[in-house]
Design a protein around this nucleic acid. Structure first.
Lengths: 152, 152
DNA sequence: GTAATTCGTTGACCTTGATCAATAAAGACG
DNA sequence: CGTCTTTATTGATCAAGGTCAACGAATTAC
């Protein structure tokens, strides 16, 4: 998935790890991570049919099954349970975005990091710190300092 | 709607203006505003059946039609179009939250304010500045200074 | 093995926006 | 009208986190 194109696909990750990023000046800002058994897409572009502001890339070697919007719709007609899955997916997406927004509204950098550590330690284990930093919208140096403070 | 209770209602605002807020220390942090023809709820609590972290209050005198989750479900069974409305509502909610999150990830305080001015000038007209400030997650003094800079 | 990347840590300094306090404006109400 | 209250502005100072640069540690390349 490239920036500027309309996203008309959804991927289901079989194995590996992907990131979905914005660009700001030259840098990548992580919008989200996705790994095994997660769906990946620019759902915003998918829904609105507007050009994507994001890019989707692999962090590890990854196997993804991709389906287009059209095919998904067709499939939905013959297999109604697909509808349910997609509604569920939306809901999960909503909840995750909500938590993230809430954390930006209410928490400091170090609180955000601590919460991520406790709630998504799987991610923190697996992903380099500078990407975690980007996800929390802070600089790698800041994460480093937070870690230092909290182990002394 | 009070903090700590499970939100099992949705309101449709006929007239007036409401706010949905988090609490941080003693202060209110605006999660969202809603006015005429908008739905208002703590959709997070509604979906997850967990106690709400938010409170919903009036800013102006307001008339709201409220329906419970149960009644809504029943109604959904007899009037299938209700399902469609609710899906549409979710989608709108998702898009708005996405834009807001994106703005926190990519924009400075003053960029957030400028965008709000241009994209939701209706709100900015109608709502006192200190509430706008809270919505943008900055202090009223900061808004004041942004305004000053941009009119000189 | 050593060189070359890449990622993480540390320090010195800078910028953005917060905090605190004092006015000034604008509404509400007798 | 003047008083009381709420909101907005301004200035002085502070703190969180960013920036830049140096250095280490770990990984890969040769």
């Amino acid at each position: 998935m490239e920036e500027g194109k309309i996203c008309n696909k959804v991927g289901l990750i079989e194995s590996g790890l992907m990131k979905c990023v914005f660009h700001k000046h030259g840098d990548e800002i992580i919008f989200e991570f996705a790994f095994e058994n997660n769906f990946i897409s620019d759902y915003y572009s998918f829904v609105t049919d507007t050009p994507s502001a994001k890019e989707i890339k692999c962090i590890e070697d990854t196997t993804v099954y991709v389906i287009t919007k059209e095919k998904l719709k067709k499939l939905g007609r013959s297999h109604p349970f697909i509808e349910g899955i997609s509604r569920q997916m939306n809901e999960k997406l909503f909840l995750r975005m909500h938590d993230r927004l809430k954390s930006f509204l209410l928490d400091s950098a170090s609180e955000r990091y601590m919460k991520l550590m406790s709630e998504r330690s799987d991610l923190v284990q697996r992903i380099p710190q500078y990407l975690i930093a980007s996800y929390l919208n802070v600089k790698p140096e800041t994460i480093s300092r937070i870690r230092k403070k909290n182990t002394l």
